[in-house]
Design a protein around this nucleic acid. Sequence first.
DNA 1: CATTTTTCTTGGATCGATTCAAATATTGCT
DNA 2: AGCAATATTTGAATCGATCCAAGAAAAATG
Lengths: 358, 358
Amino acid sequence: MAALVEGQARPIRLADIAKAAGVSHGTASNVFSRPEIVRAEVRERVKAVAEAMGYAGPDPKGRLLRAGKVNAIGVCTTEPLSYFFDDPFARVMMAGISQACDATGAGIALVSAQNDEKLAWNIQSALVDGFILFCIEGGPRLVELTRERRLPFVALAIGFDDDTISMIGIDNIAGARLAARHLGELGHRRFAVLSLPFVDGSTGLVMPGRLGTALYTATRDRLAGYFEELARFGVDTTRVPVYETENEAATTRAGLEAIFASGEPPTAILAMSDRMAMVAIDWLTERGLNVPGDVSVVGFDGVPDGLLSRPQLTTIAQPIAEIGRRAARMILDFDGAVRREMLGVELVVRASTGPAKA
Amino acid sequence: MAALVEGQARPIRLADIAKAAGVSHGTASNVFSRPEIVRAEVRERVKAVAEAMGYAGPDPKGRLLRAGKVNAIGVCTTEPLSYFFDDPFARVMMAGISQACDATGAGIALVSAQNDEKLAWNIQSALVDGFILFCIEGGPRLVELTRERRLPFVALAIGFDDDTISMIGIDNIAGARLAARHLGELGHRRFAVLSLPFVDGSTGLVMPGRLGTALYTATRDRLAGYFEELARFGVDTTRVPVYETENEAATTRAGLEAIFASGEPPTAILAMSDRMAMVAIDWLTERGLNVPGDVSVVGFDGVPDGLLSRPQLTTIAQPIAEIGRRAARMILDFDGAVRREMLGVELVVRASTGPAKA
DNA sequence: CATTTTTCTTGGATCGATTCAAATATTGCT
DNA sequence: AGCAATATTTGAATCGATCCAAGAAAAATG
């Protein structure tokens, strides 16, 4: 008893079992990984020895090196890890990724880090077969670091142009047009836009000269889509205020203050995210303005939370879970090709939009 | 050019770089892992060669075997993977786990599987230093499988007694008493209990004889707590209907039907989870009953969704995120001891409870 | 220049398994 | 029993790195 128990300092290896059972390590390995090719008598003996010695089974660390494949995909972002569980958009996306992984038995490893150095290290050392990148912020850096790993990866919600990487995106221009057309058809003619950032860290009312300069394509395309469509309704888009926020409450509220400070307040707000749209609804309601009676609001994304806002949010819904599923499959079935998929979006009319006041 | 590029079929190894640069593999390794001990000139040469050959950096698979530590913890459940992103309780818990992991730079691997065989395999081969077990359902099996890995693990939300495993739990009895006392003090004397399962798969009104027989300790303790406290208010607990649900909408609704079918409907409902409590609120509202005017409802868990129900839910709040943080730390700082931590709960009075009708 | 220190580099051992061609045992059949 | 066919077992090679004792080179010292 003593010898074995004391040996617990050093975990038992397959080789120990083999020696104790008097078989080669090849056979011992077979007992665990291909039991059917081992003679029953030998198999039972080896298993008994393993049991008696407290062997934990073949260590995946060893197997991994030999096998090459990890059978897991890494999901990576520059946000803290809890982002995956807090953010509604991320959650639906992760649910989609989960489904694809569940279907093939692949695992999911969450990768993130506060600072650049740690992030680099975590990407370097993630035990995965490929990455899905959430390019919410710091996208280019994330891509750069991941590229060094030379593993397959897909970029999601990618804000910038780069034809050399696989990505799954949506047709932002079409989505934005859908939103604008909906409001135009309801008779609205005075608009304001709550915009996603043009570049990291800037915020405030966007001067007309900067309108085409957004670094992020999502921002640029959505703005372009809004304006193209508004122009068709005869709106003078140069007079539509565009406020750049950081896609969270504080800057969005600041934007609303700025927008409604002017003499001619809008009757409809085009928000580039559901998050901003819901902040807008709250803000308007607090101000005693009725949504949609006084002001209509359209969001963008189609997160499930939109159903919980009062009134329920009219929005441009992305197929978020489907994007996640496809991304996961793209990694799981990787074939060396760079793929760029563009999914359609959909106008979901709920209760936050209505006819313009006469 | 040709030779190297054609070699891409086989990924470049550190040894290849070493040979090409004319140094030993030991030195090549140092260039990447401890660059400061390599002479600058050599270091730059090796790096240049690595760059030229398209070396992706030391493969973590190799490093892992040598290092022994994975620096990641596995979170495991028998639910599908998407459970981690869908379920409100799980999400808050994961956020807590994430925080602890973020703080130490550890990664998170999600482990789950549809069937027992796959689950066993996934647990066997998870590349982690320890496990956190979500013992929602099939807890004993999960523990059994994990134990075979002989890695540290902590059980959460564990429903059964087993002193040999580490766990973090809450004082279910105290929590239940808090809920019952709150209602008793509001003057309620006619109660009904929406119960978590006694054993997997059973559901329906619980016959008095079975009341002490719940396999799951959470169920048993909460029930005991409710009854102890109700008895103090002079309630005849043998006449309090207890309906066993599967903690989801369908069986909870069936329970409510059964409970309100009797001649003497309760004025207060003790629900063993927020989920059931919120279903109850919806059901009662649909029936034209006012909450809390006609019927008060208390939940259990304290998930953030409770704030979104109308009226907002009165509940017994567990320190969910804290449980997650502690669990993660227990694995990260594992010292070989079996630890059992019991955290306190708190009555959070919101709007779903009020005085009993006169 | 010889000697001592200090700094780098080397190459074998190791982490824990799987694989596969070759060697050995069994079994079947005449 | 003899021999081919089939079933098992063996053990070296491999996966891709890190570690470390020992040797070599460079720098410092007298």
